[in-house]
């Protein structure tokens, strides 16, 4: 159940990010200066943490999505869903361990 809850939460979160993302990217059609001004606003620690949350959400949603595909389309998926969930969590942690320190150094200095 918790895999599903996390999948929902990350899915809705990613949806709202995409809304904003399409709006700010579309700004480049208004004027490149407006686009640059908006993107410059993102360069602060709060948005930096938000980016970390975004990558974490997308990472989980993608990996768990593969797990759901295996559950839906293979014969063995439903029987091993718990093990696959733990594999998803392990891969997710590994990916974030690779990303988070480097990203946080960019955000808070020290790179």
């Amino acid at each position: 159940m918790w895999s599903w809850v996390l999948h929902r939460i990350t899915g809705v979160g990613i949806y709202f990010f995409l809304l904003v993302h399409i709006l700010d990217t579309a700004l480049v059609r208004v004027s490149p200066e407006a686009y640059n001004a908006v993107i410059a606003q993102y360069k602060n620690p709060i948005m930096g943490l938000g980016e970390l949350a975004l990558v974490a959400a997308i990472g989980f949603h993608a990996l768990n999505g593969l797990r759901i595909i295996l559950i839906d389309f293979t014969g063995f998926g439903t029987r091993h869903q718990k093990a696959m969930f733990y594999i998803v969590l392990a891969l997710w942690v590994v990916l974030l361990l690779g990303f988070a320190p480097r990203h946080l150094m960019h955000v808070f200095g020290g790179a």
Partner: peptide, 19 residues
């Protein structure tokens, strides 16, 4: 069905419901 697997965990007869 969103494959939450609650049904498989709940079944008192051990049916693999989600399967």
């Amino acid at each position: 069905c969103r494959t939450t697997f609650n049904c498989s965990d709940a079944c008192p007869r051990g049916i693999e419901v989600t399967k």
